[in-house]
Design a protein around this nucleic acid. Structure first.
Length: 519
DNA sequence: CCTTAGACCTG
DNA sequence: GTCGCTC
DNA sequence: GAGCGACAAGGTCTAAGG
């Protein structure tokens, strides 16, 4: 199969708007691939490569395509050849490897026609933007193989390997998919949480629920089979080698064979959690020193224990199984609410959540007692509740948007008042970060118009404006920053509303922002 | 030796 | 990670 | 309700350049 066929499919998928039409196009390409080509085609048509890392990205591609190098007269690249090139990119390492990778990419791109270049660039940068990703590819596999989508989804969430599932589905149909099961040692898609602004609204989604602390760390899935222990992240990355302490600890737990779900984080000597930045840095590091802070593991779910799969079991059953895996001190604190309409129970839940916050944790996750473990889903089974901070800040500049936001001023530079001149001229504004979130199409249109009216200067991608427009911003907290003058940046900032009625002189000050630094 | 660019990972 | 739009 | 895409910020690692 020629890469041109895959590229043409991707172009066609991008050109149609309906999901069904996209799925049909994807399914057609999957059917046309041979068994050997299918893993590559399935991966690429969901915007991914089979290689976890290629070592080339946006910069390498844009340097190559800059100046519009001439295209070949005919399409010659094959799926198999491109797959081999991707393998070579992944395998390149050591001195001189950057040049080797650049040469590999250059050979590939210069041999590619226009649509093929668009596909290759999208794969390398991870931004294919054809309006279909892994989710629609699952439907396409189901359609191509004439099997239920649910069977495909289950197999993919159990293995994390859509390519293998595609091969099994088209080759062996539903019986082959049914043969996929939970395997200790193979990562499966973790269950995700929706969010709600309050406990009351969370309970409305879940019904009777267990309320658990929400810990601000890194999600881990721990597998043990005897002495074999493996640890995976939320994206199924294998981090076993980076967490030797957890591996050793897991070998001492009472159960010999299990898959459990939890979080690792760094705690201070007083038991309060370190800021996420500290935990993240410890987990990311490939080498350990004896003096650095150990990571603490907290467990909150069990997917398999000593021969029993628990994916379809309810919450209390899984929690009871978890209690047989590890010492009680490692289990996340949990408070069960049978009837949220009962004022006493509701008050107790609020007190439990307030205590979690008082101890420095992020909030709570409300987990339906009745729910199964919904792999890879962000459904109503788990609902996180975190406090929200809002401030009135001033727009200092805005950046032009991309994709569906092309032609609109999107990313806002946010500043707080600095009346005392702590970080710049007295009476000026201190930048605290940027955000593009929370803006509706109407808000984008309005702010583009308004900001152009108060434009001060422009450099092609950024428009600096008079600091007069106040925006109401919600965020989760402040984190330390080396990028911004006040030494802090807002975490997960999003726009709630424009406040053209409010004078910039009444916006919040940098001192108010600094008061939200963790204790 | 140190600095920098880029890729890639996390919430 | 959050949010809005589309199907 | 699910899927997609709009993009942030900080951190580590690798390779390259001085």
């Amino acid at each position: 199969m020629l890469l041109a066929e895959v590229a043409a499919t991707s172009e066609a998928v991008a050109a149609v708007s309906g999901k069904k039409a996209k799925v049909e196009l994807l399914a057609g390409a999957l059917r046309a691939a041979t068994a050997a080509e299918l893993p590559s085609v399935a991966a690429w048509l969901s915007g991914q490569t089979r290689q976890r890392r290629l070592g080339v990205g946006w910069a390498a591609v844009s340097a190559l395509l800059d100046g519009g190098p001439p295209e070949p007269a005919a399409a010659t690249l094959t799926v198999e050849g491109v797959e081999r090139a991707f393998e070579a990119l992944q395998d390149a390492g050591g001195a001189g490897s950057q040049a080797a990778r650049a040469a590999l990419l250059r050979d590939l791109v210069l041999a590619a026609t226009g649509p093929e270049r668009r596909l290759l660039a999208g794969l390398v940068t991870g931004e294919l933007r054809q309006g279909a990703q892994a989710g629609l590819l699952l439907d396409a596999i189901a359609l191509a193989a004439a099997v239920p989508a649910a069977a495909v989804r289950r197999a993919v969430t159990l293995t994390g390997d859509p390519a293998a599932v595609a091969v099994a589905a088209l080759d062996g149909g539903e019986p082959a998919l049914a043969a996929f099961g939970l395997r200790v040692g193979t990562a499966l898609s973790p269950m995700l949480a929706a969010s709600a602004p309050s406990l009351t609204e969370a309970f409305a989604k879940t019904g009777p629920a267990g309320v658990e602390w929400k810990l601000d760390g890194v999600r881990v899935q721990v597998h043990r089979d005897g002495d074999d222990v493996a640890v995976f992240t939320r994206t199924l990355d294998d981090v076993t080698a980076r967490l030797p302490g957890l591996v050793a600890e897991a070998r001492t737990w009472p159960a010999g064979r299990f898959v459990v779900d939890g979080e690792v984080l760094a705690l201070r000597p007083d038991g309060r959690p370190e800021p996420f930045q500290v935990t993240s840095s410890l987990v990311a590091r490939h080498t350990r020193t004896d003096t650095e802070r150990p990571l603490t593991t907290v467990l909150f779910d069990a997917l398999h224990v000593d021969g029993t799969d628990l994916l379809d079991a309810d919450g209390p059953t899984r929690r009871a199984a978890l209690a047989t895996v590890a010492p009680a001190g490692l289990l996340v604190p949990r408070h069960v609410v049978e009837d949220a309409a009962d004022p006493g129970e509701a008050a107790a839940a609020e007190a439990f959540a307030a205590d979690a916050l008082a101890r420095g944790h992020e909030g709570v996750v409300v987990k339906a007692l009745a729910g199964a473990y919904a792999m890879g889903r962000r459904g109503a089974g788990w609902v996180k509740v975190k406090p929200r901070i809002t401030l009135d800040l001033v727009v200092l500049a805005a950046e032009w948007g991309h994709g569906r936001r092309t032609g609109l001023l999107s990313n806002l530079h946010l500043g707080a008042r600095d009346p005392g001149g702590r970080f710049g001229p007295a009476g000026g504004f201190v930048m605290l970060g940027k955000t593009f979130k929370g803006l509706t199409d109407a808000m984008l249109a309005w702010q583009t118009e308004h900001l152009r009216g108060i434009e001060r200067s422009s450099n092609g991608w950024r428009v600096d404006v008079e600091p007069t427009l106040v925006v109401e911003i919600a965020f989760d907290g402040v984190q330390t920053s080396s990028r911004y003058p006040a030494g802090v940046a807002l975490r997960f900032a999003r726009v709630l509303a424009h406040r053209p009625d409010k004078p910039a002189g009444e916006a919040d000050t940098v001192d108010t922002v600094l008061s939200y630094r963790p204790v």
